[in-house]
């Protein structure tokens, strides 16, 4: 019988300390980077949020919905349009892009709430993503069409927002806050209800849990997180193009979810870090990059079907993600 080894009170204290220690150490990262590696590090932070939002819906809620890249594009375009056309300061566009992403989540959940599930939900949400891409291409006056949307120049506290070190600190703050909020959510009655819907939706309703609301809110929170990531991405690349939000992005994010471990917050972080950094290392093998990338993803999944997070869980109970929170 698999009695999960749960972390002791001491380990739980250590863990909450560790949670803040990681970003604290990362504050020093710009001292150790060059412009190129700093740019990669910024991209990793965006991937963490994209993967986190994705894993909530397909891992925790168990819905085969592939609208994640749509949320990302909606967030990126919302940020770019608000900043470039309406002159909204970019920092302010982050939560607004999140709100638009949440609206995308609302739309995606309406399909699930009408009883469209499994493969049918997969197809309809894929279509949603492609429809959004079509809209970016064809709503030229608003989105710039194939030319995309350039981000306006802006300064913050006297530093240009094209500075990657400044961007890193902003991205880090946004990422840490959203990861922390998502952890709070998952380790609460809400997080348990999300998993309960995945396990047995009919039985969940019998426990006075409003299942439709749980599904709706999960999709919207996922959209919010990924929408915020979109706003970061707009500033990260400086110019938003429709091609960034196609199937390739979706498949890469899906691989990050699986490599990290479905339905795991820690897994989302690990998968995003590994698979965003990996292609950069593989540049040393021109012509073989895709092959090696595919082999590594397949290798991880064959060796650890439950993802990298499951490996850490075996190392120490400190990495066990429980869906309740005891006093430290």
């Amino acid at each position: 019988m698999s009695q999960t080894k749960m972390p002791s009170a001491r380990q739980r204290r250590l863990r909450s300390w560790l949670f803040w220690a990681v970003p604290a150490v990362l504050l020093l990262l710009p001292l150790a980077t060059n412009p190129y590696t700093q740019f990669i590090a910024n991209g990793i932070l965006i991937s963490v949020l994209v993967t986190l939002g994705f894993t909530l819906v397909i891992g925790n809620l168990g819905q085969l919905a592939f609208a994640n890249t749509a949320f990302f594009g909606i967030g990126a375009y919302a940020s770019a349009i608000l900043a470039a056309k309406l002159g909204v300061p970019w920092l302010l566009t982050i939560p607004l892009a999140g709100a638009f992403g949440a609206l995308g989540g609302f739309l995606a959940s309406s399909a699930a709430l009408r009883g469209i599930r499994s493969y049918y939900l997969a197809i309809i949400t894929l279509a949603f993503g492609e429809l959004m891409r079509w809209a970016y291409l064809h709503a030229k006056p608003v989105t710039g069409g194939t030319d995309g949307m350039p981000m306006p120049r802006e300064t913050l506290l006297g530093t240009s927002l094209s500075d990657d070190t400044l961007k890193f600190y902003i991205f880090l703050a946004v990422t840490v806050l959203l990861v922390k909020a998502t952890l709070n959510l998952m380790r609460s009655r809400f997080g348990r209800a999300v998993m309960a819907v995945r396990e047995n939706e009919v039985a969940t309703a019998s426990l006075a849990i409003p299942t439709a609301r749980v599904i709706l809110v999960t999709f919207m929170w996922s959209g919010f997180v990924v929408g915020c990531a979109g706003a970061l991405f707009a500033r990260h690349v400086g110019h938003v193009f429709p091609e960034s939000f196609g199937m390739l992005h979706l498949i890469a994010s899906f691989a990050m979810v699986l490599v990290g471990g479905l339905g795991s917050v820690l897994g989302a972080v690990l998968g995003a870090v590994l698979l965003t950094a990996l292609p950069e290392y593989l540049r040393a093998f021109p012509g073989m990059e895709e092959l090696f990338f595919g082999l590594i993803v397949a290798g991880v999944l064959v060796a650890m079907p439950m993802g990298l997070a499951s490996l850490l869980r075996r190392v120490s109970p400190i990495f066990v993600e429980r869906f309740y929170r005891e006093a430290p």
Partner: peptide, 18 residues
């Protein structure tokens, strides 16, 4: 109607959702 992937304690706690 149990939730197999949740622990026994987590299952009982879902009964206390409201």
């Amino acid at each position: 109607g149990l939730f197999p992937a949740l622990t026994v304690l987590e299952n009982v706690m879902t009964g206390l959702h409201a």
